[in-house]
């Protein structure tokens, strides 16, 4: 249209945040198509960096679980990773030649626990002592209303009398593509916004009972009946799961076309839940950053292969893909 050469497909997506908590975010994304929405989703799951324990040196382990078992569990403990975007991948860290032990690319943890009593001792993520106060195991205590005085972390292992666990762990930056422990997203999903049109005239031909049974045919509560006017209303279009039960029901009642439901092809409702490593809102922003960097990399590396290297971190993203 405008511009010189080819047609421009530039669109101006709009984001509207509906609900936000530390680890939960619901927003609308309008004015773009499925590829962009999906790219955002994929990046959130797999390419937003976080910090997670990657190397465990066990000094003493007389617990019932074996070393690999504990190491695996430690890896899956989410760590606060607000620093992650600015941290280096240990594989391209110059300061330590990539062995991942320097302050620029790693965080050291210590865990010392020994059960001295007859009561079973739960070793939790709270027992992990970090060398960096910005990178600590995620604290869930305020997320759950403070019903108990002492909120426990994530259980790593249980010790009985005389058992001991002593270890040193190195946390590094990574992305979810390499291992799920680096994925900051617990849930990232989107849906097409449904557009529901009720054929009012046809609905009026139904009796109240019929309306009731039709409304109830939807497994989710999408429709309701106004108790006063006996009108069928769309209460919550987003509860609709595209199950077509209502359409089938309408057909079964001999009233095809009672309702028409479309999916709006250009608007999406995102639900993002974070593991706690970064805030859900930050997760989205980081994802957009990463996405942008990726696009930059594609744009800039058109000419030369060497261009890859100059992007450092980004090059790694692309090589990983």
């Amino acid at each position: 249209m405008e511009g010189g050469g080819g047609a421009s497909y530039q669109r101006f997506p709009v984001v509207k945040v509906r609900e936000t908590k530390d680890d939960y975010l619901k927003f609308e994304l309008r004015g773009t198509d499925a590829s962009v929405a999906n790219a955002l989703r994929r990046v959130m799951i797999a390419e937003v960096p976080t910090i997670a324990i990657d190397l465990v040196e066990i000094e003493v382990n007389s617990s019932v679980l074996n070393d690999e078992f504990i190491a695996h569990r430690l890896g899956l403990v989410p760590l606060t990773s607000d620093r992650a975007m600015s941290m280096r991948f240990s594989r391209d860290c110059d300061a330590c030649d990539g062995d991942g032990q320097c302050e620029f690319c790693s965080v050291e943890f210590h865990l010392r626990a020994k059960c001295m009593t007859d009561q079973t001792l739960d070793v939790t993520s709270k027992d992990l002592i970090s060398s960096d106060h910005t990178v600590v195991p995620v604290d869930f205590s305020d997320a759950l209303a403070d019903d108990s005085a002492e909120q426990k972390g994530i259980t790593i292992v249980k010790l009985r009398r005389g058992q001991e666990l002593r270890l040193r762990a190195i946390a590094r930056k990574g992305i979810g593509k390499d291992h799920a422990k680096w994925s900051p997203a617990a849930t990232v999903t989107f849906m097409y916004e449904p557009e529901i049109h009720i054929n009012e005239d046809l609905v009026e031909t139904l009796s109240l009972e019929e309306k009731q049974s039709w409304v109830e045919s939807s497994p989710t509560k999408v429709f309701d009946i106004n108790p006063n006017t006996e009108q069928v209303l769309v209460v919550d279009p987003e509860a609709y799961t595209y199950d077509e039960e209502v359409i089938k029901k309408a057909e079964a009642m001999g009233k095809p076309g009672l309702v028409e439901i479309y999916a709006k092809e250009d608007s999406f409702i995102f639900t993002v839940e974070s593991t706690g490593a970064i805030k859900a809102s930050q997760l989205v922003l980081n994802a957009i950053d990463v996405l942008k960097q990726k696009l930059d990399a594609v744009r800039l590396s058109e000419d030369t292969v060497e261009a890859d290297d100059q992007f450092g971190e980004l090059g790694a993203h692309m090589r990983g893909g």
Binding site: A34, S35, N38, T189, P219
Partner: peptide, 27 residues
């Protein structure tokens, strides 16, 4: 029970493709 918890009675779900982001053709 399934319907009560917002699932389809037949156990089928509406899924999106993880690769394209488009809805799958079938439940």
């Amino acid at each position: 029970t399934l319907v009560k918890h917002g699932f389809s009675y037949n156990g089928k779900d509406f899924l999106y493709s993880g690769i394209t982001g488009c809805p799958l053709q079938a439940y």
